Amino acid sequence: LTVQLGNLEWHFDNPEQALKMAEELAKRYQLKVEIDNGTLKFK
């Protein structure tokens, strides 16, 4: 699973870790998370 923020990307083997990080980033920057083809992206 990949977490993508702008041109930064983090790759996780563990989806739970990816979701946890995505939630933290979304909270911190007040963004919405969307999943696009196995990639978590922020809007």
Results as ranks from 00 to 15, higher is better:
Asn37Ser: 07
Thr2Ser: 08
Leu31Ala: 02
Glu16Ile: 12
Thr2Asn: 07
Val33Tyr: 15
Thr39Asn: 06
Leu40Pro: 04
Glu24Pro: 01
Thr39Gly: 03
Pro15Phe: 14
Asn37Ala: 06
Phe12Tyr: 07
Asn7Thr: 13
His11Gly: 01
Lys27Asp: 07
Lys32Glu: 11
Tyr29Thr: 04
Glu24Val: 14
Val33Thr: 03
Arg28Glu: 05
Ile35Met: 12
Lys41Gln: 06
Leu5Trp: 15
Lys41Thr: 11
Leu8Lys: 14
Leu31Glu: 01
Gln30Arg: 13
His11Leu: 06
Ala22Ile: 08
Glu16Gly: 09
Gly6Met: 05
Leu8Ser: 08
Leu5Met: 08
Ala26His: 03
Met21Asn: 02
Lys27His: 09
Lys20Ala: 12
Gly38Pro: 01
Val3Gln: 02
Glu16Met: 13
Glu23Pro: 00
Tyr29Glu: 02
Pro15Gly: 06
Glu16Ser: 10
Phe12Lys: 00
Lys27Arg: 13
Leu40Thr: 00
Gly38Asn: 10
Gln4Asp: 03
Thr2Trp: 06
Ile35Ser: 06
Ala22Leu: 08
Pro15Ala: 12
Lys20Glu: 09
Glu23Val: 12
Met21Thr: 04
Thr2Val: 11
Met21Cys: 15
Ala18Gln: 01
Ala18Leu: 06
Ala18Val: 05
Leu5Gly: 01
Leu1Trp: 14
His11Cys: 10
Leu5Gln: 01
Val3Ser: 02
Lys20Cys: 07
Thr2Asp: 05
Gln17Thr: 11
Trp10Glu: 00
Lys27Ile: 08
Glu23Lys: 10
Leu25Tyr: 07
Leu40Val: 15
Lys41Cys: 11
Lys20Thr: 09
Leu1Tyr: 13
Trp10Asn: 01
Ala18Lys: 00
Leu31Ile: 06
Leu5Ile: 09
Lys20Leu: 09
His11Val: 07
Ala26Gly: 07
Gln17Glu: 14
Glu23Ala: 12
Ala26Asn: 02
Glu23Thr: 11
Leu19Tyr: 13
Arg28Leu: 10
Phe12Thr: 02
Asn37Asp: 09
Asp36Pro: 00
Glu9Met: 14
Leu19Met: 13
Ala18Met: 06
Trp10Ala: 02
Trp10Gln: 01
Ala18Trp: 06
Ala26Cys: 13
Gly38Leu: 06
Ile35Tyr: 13
Asp36Leu: 10
Gly38Val: 05
Leu31Cys: 10
Asn14Tyr: 08
Val3Ala: 03
Val33Trp: 15
Pro15Leu: 13
Glu34Lys: 05
Glu34Phe: 15
Gln17Asn: 09
Glu24His: 13
Gln17Cys: 09
Gly38Thr: 05
Lys41Pro: 00
Asn14Trp: 08
Leu19Pro: 00
Glu16Pro: 03
Lys43Leu: 14
Tyr29Trp: 09
Lys27Ser: 08
Leu25Glu: 00
Gln4Ala: 07
Val33Ser: 02
Ala26Leu: 07
Asn14Ala: 07
Ala22Asn: 00
Thr39Tyr: 14
Phe12Gln: 00
Phe42Lys: 01
Arg28Tyr: 09
Lys27Tyr: 07
Lys27Thr: 07
Leu1Met: 13
Leu31Val: 05
Ala18Tyr: 04
Lys43Gln: 11
Met21Ser: 03
Gln30Thr: 04
Glu24Ala: 14
Ala26Gln: 04
Leu25His: 01
Pro15Ile: 13
Leu31Gly: 02
Asp13Ala: 10
Glu9His: 11
Pro15Thr: 12
Lys27Asn: 09
Ala22Glu: 00
Lys41Met: 06
Leu40Asp: 01
Gln30His: 15
Lys27Gln: 09
Val3Ile: 11
Leu1Phe: 13
Gln4Asn: 05
Glu16Arg: 11
Asn7His: 12
Asp13Gly: 08
Asp36Phe: 11
Lys41His: 08
Phe42Glu: 02
Phe12Pro: 00
Lys32Pro: 03
Gln17Lys: 12
Arg28Thr: 05
Asn7Val: 10
Leu31Ser: 02
Tyr29Ile: 04
Phe42Tyr: 03
Arg28Asp: 04
Val3Leu: 10
Lys32Gln: 13
Val33Glu: 00
Lys41Ala: 04
Leu5Ser: 03
Glu34Leu: 14
His11Ala: 04
Glu16Thr: 10
Glu9Phe: 14
Leu40Ser: 00
Trp10Gly: 00
Leu31Thr: 02
Glu16Cys: 12
Leu19Cys: 09
Arg28Ala: 05
Val3His: 02
Lys32Arg: 10
Gly6Trp: 08
Glu34Cys: 15
Thr2Gly: 03
Ala22Gln: 01
Thr2Cys: 13
Leu25Gln: 00
Met21Lys: 08
Ala26Val: 05
Asn7Ser: 11
Leu31His: 04
Pro15Asp: 05
Ala22Asp: 00
Arg28Pro: 00
Glu9Ser: 14
Pro15Ser: 10
Leu5Glu: 01
Phe12Val: 03
Glu34Val: 15
Pro15Met: 13
Arg28Cys: 14
Asp13Leu: 10
Leu5His: 04
Leu1Glu: 02
Thr2Tyr: 05
Asn7Gln: 10
Asn37His: 07
Val33Ala: 04
Glu23Asp: 09
Gly38Cys: 12
Lys43Trp: 13
Glu23Ile: 12
Thr2Gln: 04
Leu8Trp: 15
Ala22Arg: 01
Asn37Gln: 07
Val3Glu: 02
Leu40Gly: 01
Leu31Met: 09
Leu31Phe: 07
Glu34Pro: 00
Gln17Met: 12
Arg28Ser: 03
Leu8Arg: 15
Lys41Ile: 13
Leu40Tyr: 10
Gln30Tyr: 10
Val3Pro: 01
Glu24Gly: 11
Phe12Asp: 00
Lys41Gly: 03
Glu16Trp: 12
Asp13Val: 09
Pro15Asn: 07
Leu5Lys: 02
Gln17Tyr: 12
Leu1Ser: 05
Val33His: 02
Ile35Cys: 08
Lys20Trp: 06
Leu25Ile: 13
Leu31Lys: 01
Glu24Arg: 15
Thr2His: 07
Phe42Trp: 04
Met21Gln: 04
Lys43Gly: 07
Ile35Asn: 11
Lys43Pro: 04
Val3Gly: 02
Ala22Cys: 04
Asp13Thr: 12
Ala26Trp: 07
Leu31Gln: 02
Thr39Asp: 04
Pro15Tyr: 15
Val33Cys: 06
Arg28Gln: 06
Gly38Gln: 06
Phe42Asn: 02
Lys32Phe: 11
Ala18Asp: 00
Leu5Asn: 02
Gln30Pro: 03
Gln17Ile: 11
Thr39Leu: 10
Lys32Ala: 11
Glu34Ala: 07
Glu9Trp: 13
Leu8Cys: 15
Lys41Trp: 07
Lys41Glu: 03
Val33Ile: 15
Ala22Pro: 00
Trp10Phe: 08
Leu5Phe: 14
Leu8Tyr: 14
Lys41Phe: 06
Gln17Val: 11
Asp36His: 13
His11Phe: 11
Ala22Ser: 04
Lys32Thr: 14
Leu19Glu: 03
Gly6Pro: 03
Leu8Phe: 13
Gln30Ile: 04
Leu25Ala: 01
Lys27Glu: 09
Asp13Arg: 07
Lys27Pro: 02
Leu19Ser: 04
Ile35Pro: 02
Gly38Ser: 05
Ala18Phe: 06
Leu8Ala: 07
Leu1Pro: 04
Leu25Thr: 01
Val3Trp: 01
Leu31Asp: 01
Asp36Arg: 10
Gly38Ala: 06
Glu9Asn: 09
Tyr29Arg: 02
Gln4Ile: 14
Asn7Glu: 09
Asp36Ser: 13
Trp10Leu: 08
Arg28Val: 05
Ala22Met: 06
Leu8Gly: 04
Leu19His: 09
Glu34His: 12
Lys32Leu: 14
Gly38Lys: 07
Asn37Val: 03
Met21Phe: 15
Thr2Arg: 10
Asn14Met: 08
Gly38Glu: 05
Leu1Val: 09
Asp13Tyr: 07
Tyr29Pro: 01
Glu9Arg: 15
Trp10Tyr: 06
Asn7Pro: 09
Lys32Met: 11
Asn14Ile: 10
Ile35Leu: 13
Lys43Met: 12
Val33Lys: 00
Ile35Thr: 05
Ala22Trp: 05
Leu25Trp: 08
Glu34Gly: 03
Glu24Cys: 15
Arg28Trp: 07
Lys27Leu: 08
Gln4Arg: 11
Leu5Asp: 02
Arg28Gly: 01
Ala22Val: 04
Leu40His: 02
Leu5Pro: 01
Thr2Met: 07
Lys32Ile: 15
Ile35His: 08
Trp10Asp: 00
Glu24Phe: 14
Leu1Asn: 04
Gly6Arg: 05
Leu1His: 06
Glu9Cys: 15
Gln17Phe: 11
Leu1Lys: 04
Gln30Asn: 15
Leu40Phe: 06
Thr39Lys: 14
Gln30Met: 10
Gln30Glu: 08
Thr2Lys: 11
Lys20Arg: 13
Glu34Met: 14
Gln30Trp: 09
Ala22Thr: 02
Leu1Ala: 05
Leu5Thr: 02
Asn14Lys: 08
Lys41Ser: 08
Val3Phe: 04
Asp36Glu: 14
Asn7Met: 11
Lys20Gly: 05
Gly38Phe: 06
Asn37Ile: 03
Glu16Phe: 10
Glu23Gly: 08
Leu31Arg: 00
Lys27Trp: 06
Asp36Lys: 09
Glu16His: 11
Leu5Ala: 02
Ala18Ser: 02
Lys43Thr: 14
Tyr29Leu: 12
Asn37Leu: 04
Gln4Met: 11
Asp36Ile: 14
Lys43Asp: 06
Gly6Ala: 05
Lys32Asn: 08
Thr39Arg: 13
Asp13Pro: 11
Leu25Ser: 00
Val33Pro: 02
